[in-house]
Amino acid sequence: MRRWSTALAALLLAGTGLSATTAPASASRTVAGTAPSSVTCEVGWGSYGKTGADTSYKPLTDVRTGRHECFDRMVLDLEGAGHRPIGYRVGYVDSLNQDGSGDAVHVAGGAILEVRVAAPSYDPATGRATYRAKAGRRLPGVDVTGYRTFKDTRFAGSFEGDTQIGLGVRARLPFRVSQWDHRIVIDVAHRWGVLD
């Protein structure tokens, strides 16, 4: 009888251990589909407009985007600006209207972030295009399909030394703007608050 009790106790303990190890694994697969992330996203940047003062005009040469665990990123490259401040104004607008003509440019998404940089998309001395984009069209070479926050990009135009871009985002979300050498970097968070 003692052998039977010991065997039964061993089976019960083994069964308890088995259920304890399988439940969390299936729960994590159900919730995320991947291993939990150890990244904490601190995105208390706010959604008010942001500006930077400029010292000189340098032509815009490229616009590209990328994805991060906490935000989507847009990078505007300028021709050799170095460490000199680059002028910009970034903020949410109800509609994107071209400078000069006032024509509306359709931008898909739940909210529109207007990006203005003190950099023409052409060389002011020669008139040669330095960034080949067409007004009202998507930014060349930029595909935001599958991004969590970015939904659309549109070139509004380049007028009197400024270039104007529309960035369609999922909703009015917090964002930050910074300058890294000859680049303006815009990060738009995936959501509000601090994420663990």
Rank of each mutant, 00 (worst) to 15 (best):
R2G: 14
R2Y: 06
R3F: 10
W4I: 07
T6K: 13
L8S: 13
L8C: 10
A9P: 00
A10E: 12
A10G: 04
L12N: 10
L12G: 00
L13Y: 05
T16R: 13
G17H: 07
G17E: 13
A20S: 06
T22D: 08
T22V: 15
P24S: 10
A25R: 08
A25N: 09
S26Y: 13
S26R: 07
A27N: 04
S28G: 04
R29K: 05
T30W: 15
V31S: 14
V31L: 13
T34A: 08
T34L: 11
A35N: 12
P36H: 09
P36M: 01
P36I: 01
T40D: 11
V43L: 12
G44F: 09
W45N: 00
W45R: 05
G46A: 13
G46M: 12
G46I: 03
Y48F: 05
G49P: 00
T51I: 13
T51C: 15
G52I: 05
G52Q: 08
A53Y: 14
A53G: 10
K58N: 10
T61R: 12
D62L: 04
V63F: 01
V63W: 03
R64Y: 13
T65P: 02
H68S: 04
C70W: 02
F71Y: 09
D72T: 04
R73N: 14
R73Q: 15
M74W: 06
L76D: 11
L76G: 05
D77K: 07
L78C: 11
G80E: 15
A81D: 15
G82A: 11
P85G: 00
G87K: 13
G87S: 03
R89I: 02
V90D: 03
Y92A: 08
V93I: 06
D94S: 13
S95T: 10
N97H: 07
Q98A: 12
Q98R: 08
D99K: 08
D99G: 06
S101N: 01
D103Y: 08
H106E: 15
V107L: 08
G109N: 09
G110F: 02
I112D: 03
E114G: 01
E114Q: 07
R116L: 08
R116K: 12
R116W: 08
V117N: 01
V117L: 12
P120R: 01
S121G: 02
S121T: 05
T126I: 00
G127A: 09
R132P: 00
R132T: 09
A135P: 03
A135S: 15
R137L: 06
P140Q: 12
D143V: 04
G146H: 07
G146D: 11
Y147F: 02
R148Q: 11
R148M: 13
R148D: 12
T149L: 07
T149P: 02
F155L: 09
A156R: 03
G157Q: 07
S158R: 09
E160D: 12
E160K: 04
G161K: 03
D162L: 04
D162M: 05
T163V: 05
T163P: 00
I165Y: 12
G166T: 04
L167N: 10
G168V: 00
R172L: 07
L173Y: 00
P174M: 04
F175I: 01
F175C: 02
R176G: 05
V177H: 02
S178C: 01
W180F: 00
D181F: 06
D181W: 10
I184W: 04
V185K: 00
D187G: 06
V188K: 01
V188P: 00
A189V: 09
H190N: 08
R191K: 15
G193S: 05
D196C: 07
